[in-house]
Design a protein around this nucleic acid. Sequence first.
DNA 1: TGTTGACCTGTGAGCGGCTCACAGGTTTAT
DNA 2: ATAAACCTGTGAGCCGCTCACAGGTCAACA
Lengths: 136, 136
Amino acid sequence: MRVKQIADALDISVDTVRYYTRIGLLVPNRSHNGYKYYRPADVTRLRFILSARSLGFSVNDIKEILVTSSQTNAPCPTVRRLIEKRLKETEQRYQDMHELRERMRLATSEWQNKPDQPPTADTICHLIEGFTALKS
Amino acid sequence: MRVKQIADALDISVDTVRYYTRIGLLVPNRSHNGYKYYRPADVTRLRFILSARSLGFSVNDIKEILVTSSQTNAPCPTVRRLIEKRLKETEQRYQDMHELRERMRLATSEWQNKPDQPPTADTICHLIEGFTALKS
DNA sequence: TGTTGACCTGTGAGCGGCTCACAGGTTTAT
DNA sequence: ATAAACCTGTGAGCCGCTCACAGGTCAACA
């Protein structure tokens, strides 16, 4: 299979396949004309990559898992260790997003009742600089 | 003020100040030895940048707001338009983060009862590939 | 046999928002 | 005078793609 075929088969862009190939997650054959040819094993591998991505693993995590899996018997301990780490990060980012969303919502509602004003010597936009939730 | 002073004053890294300077959000003076010197107006400006960042505006948004504010009377219409857009994106990303977190939590709990297994011909890690929530 | 045109290819660069590495300049203490 | 601490700007690197682009391939038609 060439890049377009494998990309279409798994419903992702050719650029994503090329990216994974470029960083060594996929290692296709090369034909005489320089084209990359993907075998069934590469499809399995790519499917695995996509599953892992959708579980929050980074491409470096995936690289590590693939190396472990080819060197030792079970990559599972690595996988368990990594997801714990990534889950913690995700919880944190989720929390941060929540707070950001609250700030943004509060700002928009607060700004409903405020008029437009031109900038002054020490304020650029009174909406932003005067937003109460920023005054710690 | 030189870069370290302004960075310390607003409790951010010198690299961040330098980044904002590099992309033209801040325009300090240059002294004979090539050092950048920041004036009180730059402090106001940087404080504004930080407020806007914490409300979810991108640096490009901020650039646009600053330009508008220096060209027209009130940047407020621009600000209102931009935050609406960013808020929508934030809601979406928040939702995505929520789903990701759920998937990760479900996976970890499901994996508690599963043993480690070596890879086979068509599975790299049975935990990831066999995770139920991925089977659409 | 030639040629048009659709489609496909790989490579290199770009994105955002910083962060890091590094060679060299400046300041302070001796 | 000199050593050490600290500061400087510039360039490159990070992640996970995405885009631009010049050129290659291939089937259909003249």
